[in-house]
Design a protein around this nucleic acid. Structure first.
Lengths: 350, 350
DNA sequence: TTAATTTTTGAAAGCGCTTTCAAATGATAA
DNA sequence: TTATCATTTGAAAGCGCTTTCAAAAATTAA
C-alpha cells in the first residue's frame, strides 16, 4: 500500500504514490492533504507547507478517476465538431481548448463527419467518460442526443449559430442575416441572378441558415432563387470546381455566386480561371469564413468574416462560468463582417 | 442508493442509475452485470439477455471514473500537438481520433504552441486525468516530460519524425531524407543557390531535420548553404511573404527556395507575384506537405507529400496494440513523395 | 482566568465499479 | 448412478480520493 518515508528512497517507483503516502510523509491525515489540493486556505500554513513539500519529494500526481468518483466532477469537458481537420473548426477547437486549459479543464474531442448518429455515439462515449460539460456544433441533431445529455444533467452549449426558437444555449452568430447582408450587397452591385454553391444542407443548420439568408435577400428584391442556381455538394475545392462548371453551363448562368464556405469559393475561382471566366469581370464570387487565404489569393476574395476563435473562447467561458455555479447571461450573438475585396464587382454589361 | 424495479417507473430521473440498479432489475449480482459489460462470453446467455434488457430499460450508462478506478484503465488517450488549428496536424488528429474511437477510446487533445513547458503542463494534466496512452509530436522536449510519462508507466508514441538514436517509439517519416531528396532535385535542375525559408527551428526537430537534409544535399554538391540564404520565421503566409522579400534583397539572391511548410511557400509565391518575380522563371519554389491547395494554386506547387493522416492512424494503431497487450513491431518509416508540379524549373539563364 | 466561538484537524464512510475467491452449478467420465 | 472437472455465479474487499461529522486546537469574549 504505497510507500513510506524510508522506503521511498529505497524503492522510488514501487507502485503508485497515493495521497495517503503524502499524508504519511507530511505527518497529517489524508483529509488534510485533500484539503490542500482543493481548498488550500482552509488549512494551516505550516501544515500546508509540509504537504506541498511531501508532494514535491514524492512526485505525487493525484488520481483523476478517484477524484472524479469521490467529488462527482472530472474536470473534463467534451467537444464534438462535424470535422476537425480544417482551419475553421480547428480555430474554434484551438481557442476552446486553450480557454479550458487555463481554467484547468481537459478537453475530449471528436469529429462527427456531419453525421448525427456518429455524433450521438461520441456524446455517449464522452458522457461515459464523465465529462462535466459539452460543446456541440449547431442545433439540429438526433433528439436522443439531447435526451442523453439531459439525463446526465450536465451543462452544454451549442455553437456556430444562434438559438432561434430553440431553448438550447448557443454561442454563435446569425448565419442567416450575414448571408442576407452579403447577398444584398451583390444585388446592390446590379446583379440579378445570384447562384448559391452550398455545402450539403442535410443536418447542417448553418448551411441551411445561409441559404435562407440568400432567399431573404431575393425576397426583398421581389425575386426568387432559381432552382438550377442552387447546387449542393460536400465542402471541398474539387467540389467547388465541379459546381462552378455545373452552374455556368446553365442556359442562363448567374453573374454572381455565393459560396457556403471558402474552399468552395477557391474551387470556383480556380475553375473560372481555367475556363477564362474572369472574376469579377464575368462572375462575382463571394463566400464565408475569411481564412488566411482569402486576402492572399488572386483575386482577393470578398467574404464574410466569421468569429471562429471567438466562438471557441466564448463557448468555453460560458461553460466554465456555468460549472463554477455562476449562471452566466445567455451569450450575445457574435459579430460578422462583410469584407469586400476583389472577387466581386458589377455584373458584365451584356 | 439508486432505484429499484417499481420506483424506476415512478421516478425515472431520481439520481444516477447504477450498475447495482441494473443488477436488481435483472435479478443477478452486480458482479455479473460487470461481467456482461466486460467479458460477455463469460456469462450465461439468458442472464446476459436479462442484463442487457435491464440496461436498456433503465438507460444505464456506466460510470467511467468508477470503472477507471477499479480497473486501472480509463480508455482515454492523450494527444498533444504543437498546434491544432491547421490542416496539417488537423488531419493527423482527425485520423488519430477516428482510429481511437473505433477501438472505443476517447481522446483528450491539447496544443502546446511549440512550447515545451506548455507541453509538459498538458502532459501532466492528461496524466492526472488518467490517460492510458499518449501521443506526442517530435522527440525534442523537456526531459522532465519524459520522466513524468515514465513514472506513470503508460505507453506513448512520438510522431512526425523517425526515432533516430533515441529509444522512443516513433511513427513518422524521414524529414531529413525527404528534404535532401527535394534539394537534390533542385540541384539537378541546375540551381546553385538554393535558399531555405524555415519555420522556427528551436524546439522543432522536424524543421531541424529538414534543414539538415538541405545541408546534406549541399554537401553532396561540395557546396554549403550560405548563411544569408537561410531565414527563420514562424509558420504563416505573411511570414512567407516577408521572408521572400528578405531573401530576394540579398546581393546574390537564390534562384530557388525550399520552404519548411506550405503556408510559407504560398506567401513566397504571392509576394513574388507582387514583385513581378516569375515563378518558376526567376525563382523556383518548393515545399512540404501537399495540402489541398498545393495542386490548385497557380503555379501549382512542387512539394513533398507528407503522410499526415497515416501518421495519426498508425500512431493510434500502435498504441491500441500496445494497450491490448500485443507488443507491436516498431512502426516502419512512412513514405513521402516528391510531387513535381509547376513552381519549380531551371534557373534563369543569366 | 474561564467560557464561548471559531477555526483546523482526523476518523470513517462512501463514490460506482472490478476482481478475487470460494461456492454452486452444469457437464463429462467412469 | 456417483465422482471429477470445467463453467457460472455471488459476496466482499478494495481502487484512491472527498466529505461529513465530531473532536481538538486556537482564538475571542467575558
Amino acid at each position: 500500500m504505497g510507500i513510506d518515508l524510508e522506503s521511498a528512497s529505497k524503492s522510488p517507483s514501487l507502485g503508485r504514490v497515493t495521497l495517503e503516502d503524502v499524508a504519511h510523509l507530511a505527518k497529517v491525515s489524508p483529509a488534510t492533504v485533500s484539503r490542500c489540493l482543493n481548498r488550500p486556505d482552509s488549512v494551516n500554513l505550516d501544515k500546508r507547507a509540509r504537504v506541498n513539500q511531501a508532494i514535491q519529494t514524492l512526485g505525487y500526481v493525484p488520481h483523476g478517476a478517484a477524484r472524479a468518483l469521490a467529488s462527482k466532477q472530472s474536470r473534463m469537458v467534451g467537444a464534438v465538431f462535424p470535422a476537425i481537420d480544417n482551419t475553421l473548426f480547428g480555430a474554434s477547437l484551438d481557442a476552446f481548448q486553450r480557454t479550458m486549459a487555463d481554467a484547468d479543464y481537459t478537453v475530449i474531442v471528436a469529429s462527427s463527419d456531419y453525421d448525427p448518429l456518429r455524433e450521438k455515439q461520441h456524446v455517449r462515449r464522452m458522457l461515459q467518460s464523465g465529462i462535466d460539460a459539452l460543446m456541440l456544433v449547431g442545433l439540429v441533431r438526433d433528439e436522443e442526443t439531447y435526451e442523453l445529455i439531459g439525463a446526465h444533467g450536465i451543462p452544454y452549449v451549442t455553437v456556430w449559430r444562434l438559438a432561434g426558437q430553440q431553448v438550447h444555449p448557443a454561442v454563435g452568430f446569425d448565419n442567416r442575416a450575414a448571408a442576407q447582408h452579403l447577398t444584398d450587397y451583390l444585388f446592390s452591385l446590379g446583379h440579378e441572378r445570384i447562384g448559391v454553391l452550398s455545402g450539403i444542407l442535410e443536418y447542417n443548420d448553418r448551411a441551411q441558415d445561409r441559404l435562407a439568408g440568400v432567399r431573404d435577400s431575393y425576397a426583398k428584391q421581389g425575386r426568387t432563387l432559381a432552382d438550377n442556381h442552387l447546387i449542393e455538394r460536400p465542402f471541398g475545392v474539387e467540389q467547388g470546381r465541379e459546381m462552378l462548371r455545373l452552374i455556368m453551363s446553365q442556359e442562363t448562368p448567374p453573374t454572381a455566386v455565393v459560396c457556403g464556405a471558402e474552399p468552395l469559393a477557391y474551387g470556383a475561382i480556380f475553375e473560372a480561371a481555367a475556363h477564362n471566366i474572369s472574376v469579377p469581370g464575368d462572375l462575382s464570387v463571394a463566400a464565408f469564413d475569411d481564412t488566411w487565404l482569402a486576402g492572399q489569393i488572386s483575386p482577393k476574395l470578398t467574404t464574410v468574416r466569421t468569429p471562429n476563435m471567438e466562438i471557441g473562447e466564448e463557448a468555453a467561458k460560458y461553460l466554465i462560468a456555468t460549472l463554477s455555479g455562476v449562471q452566466p447571461p445567455l451569450p450575445r450573438p457574435l459579430e460578422t463582417d462583410l469584407i469586400i475585396r476583389e472577387s466581386t464587382g458589377r455584373p458584365p454589361a451584356g
